[in-house]
Design a protein around this nucleic acid. Structure first.
Lengths: 344, 344
DNA sequence: ACAAACCTTGTTAGCGCTAACAATGTGAGC
DNA sequence: GCTCACATTGTTAGCGCTAACAAGGTTTGT
């Protein structure tokens, strides 16, 4: 399994093809200044030797590592993970590598350490998947010469002077809330995500905006931490505070799952007594009981756009006519059975 | 944000400290052959200039990139993702970087492409998180000089001549099955995972072993693909085939969720009429209705062990007394309300 | 036919670091 | 005092690649 013969290098190919190593380099890099017969000779030699360009040497000579860094938060949330895959896919298609750094808890310190780790791997740019307020601050402060893109918390990050790409949280939350309002619910309660996450703040904004537009009263916010447990606890608290509530918009599907459970325990039927809407559309949402109405986010798409945007920052000359993608990814309301008309 | 002054290099530090660049190198690498005053001068100069060693140059000179590669499958499954985080954490603690390659579908081809991508990034070793049979085959065939560790599908990978680490699937599945049997169920049906995954084959083995040990009949296997949907469909099929079944062991929690839904639709109560046990213990399992009895896997732990095992392969001399961790991570049965006594 | 413009190839000099060896200086041992 | 061992430092030569320039050969225009 471990062969001992050293991997062939450019000089080996050059010798075999009877040209200089620079000519081999030209062929490898697709330079037009190589005659067809020479190119073929080189190609044949490469093939014969099984030559593969040494990325490290190339990186040293060009001062470009061809690697992007991704900073992500350590909770296994559907969003960040799917985005990560989108990033890797897009990067792979462009011939770029992806290094990751997982931040175990959100503190400027942890973020800085993650950043340092990526810098030490000579990444050319960073995509940050954890858009808590602190993280954004720490990153914008800590990034030295590194370009970065934030995924999520769009406008918030933009305000901090950074480039961002993300789902249109505002619109998605508005759509969810409006959907419930249109069913005749007097108002919609909101099980919010952690308020240090920019994403969840935008969802609150959207919810609030839809409420106000409809002239509906704004019930007090209950804050969770994205977990099903927090949705469960939050729902119980809400129910205790306002037993008459009829519609709940949860900041993500996990929290909605917890809410569903709490409602069941309290003897409330969904959607007959209380309607529930989630956010994200995780693959399981369709199999919750009842199937969850939710707002689908296209995380992988966001990840792909992030890569293109980042490439734009790193190599402005290389992203030509095919314009950079718009940073705002639209959402999609997926109506299932957990939402319905208000009981009368 | 983008400063223009080039980053200081070793020579800059050397000049400032009044020593040769090699002495700086010695300090950076913790060589004992540097006098304390000299070391302090160098350290001060490094501090003053904000020197950071260039990992690429070091990699070129030492022929070691300090980077591990992880190959993972593109489904957002709880296991692989958590393992990935465990890998990153352990690698980070050892000063190693982590590059990822996501395989979009399982074919030898896709696996080979992912492998090539990692090789091109000069990773020193590979940790494969996708232990489908094909993937193992493709990897063991495709790895040239690269050491690799497989996570999951333990004995299967070992049989293929590769080193592996993973959860004790056999034992976990046996425990789950036995748990149901002990409740007095005549037998236990199994909603299996995709049979090209080594993990799910081991779960089948464990289930089968427990059944045989108890002298229980072995119902036909229903195969899914890890998704809630497949659990739902599989459960319906099972119910159609054997309306009298009373206990189901699902290969993972998502499939169990689908099964729960199918049982509900069929008017079967859980656990009064039918008991359900899952596998993995995803964070949401506790909030399924009813809370799911399941087998907890310690994925992050498996990831960490994989890193240490891989390091052993890469740098045998460096992992000393503190023995390599055992490759088999134990599981833990978490009993919740979805399992109970057989109805009489 | 002759020079200016190529096109093609080769030569040289790094990128920033480490490995190997050489060259000091110091104290111990005879 | 002189040699030997050793600790400390410096010098040199790469790692495998690309960038920049140089050097031929072939066109082309007039």
């Amino acid at each position: 399994m471990h062969d001992s013969a050293p991997a062939p290098v450019m000089t080996d190919v050059a010798r075999l093809a009877g040209v200089s190593h620079q000519t081999v380099s030209r062929v490898v890099n697709g330079s037009p200044h190589v005659s067809t017969p020479t190119r073929n000779k080189v190609l044949a030699a490469m093939e014969q030797l099984g030559y593969r360009r040494n990325a490290v040497a190339r990186a040293l000579a060009t001062r470009r590592s061809g690697t992007l860094g991704v900073i992500t938060f350590d909770t296994v949330l559907h969003g960040p993970v799917t985005t990560l895959y989108g990033v890797e896919q897009a990067a792979g298609a462009l011939g770029l590598g992806v290094s990751i750094a997982v931040v175990d808890r959100v503190s400027s310190d942890a973020v800085m350490r993650a950043l340092t780790r990526l810098e030490d791997q000579s990444v050319e740019g960073v995509i940050a998947l954890a858009t808590q307020e602190d993280a954004v601050r720490a990153l914008t402060a800590g990034l030295r010469a590194l370009p970065a893109i934030f995924v999520g918390g769009l406008a918030g990050a933009a305000a901090a002077g950074a480039t961002a790409v993300g789902t249109d949280q505002l619109d998605g939350a508005q759509a969810a809330t409006r959907h419930l309002l249109e069913f005749g619910h007097r108002t919609v309660h909101h099980l919010a995500g952690p308020q240090d996450w920019l994403d969840s703040r935008w969802r609150v904004e959207g919810w609030r905006a839809a409420l106000h537009a409809a002239g509906a009263p704004e019930p007090p916010l209950v804050e969770g931490d994205w977990s099903a447990r927090s949705g469960y606890c939050g729902m119980r608290a809400m129910l205790a505070a306002d037993p008459a509530l009829t519609a709940v918009f949860a900041a993500n599907d996990q929290m909605a799952l917890g809410a569903l459970r709490a409602l069941d325990e309290a003897g409330r039927r969904v959607p007959e007594d209380v309607s529930v809407v989630g956010f994200d559309d995780v693959p399981e949402a369709e199999f919750f009981r009842p199937p969850l109405t939710t707002v689908r986010q296209h995380f992988a798409e966001a990840g792909q756009r992030a890569v293109h945007l980042l490439l734009d920052l790193i190599r402005p000359q290389e992203s030509p006519a095919d314009a950079t993608p718009p940073p705002l990814v639209p959402t999609e309301l997926v109506v299932r059975r957990s939402s319905g008309p208000a009981a009368r």
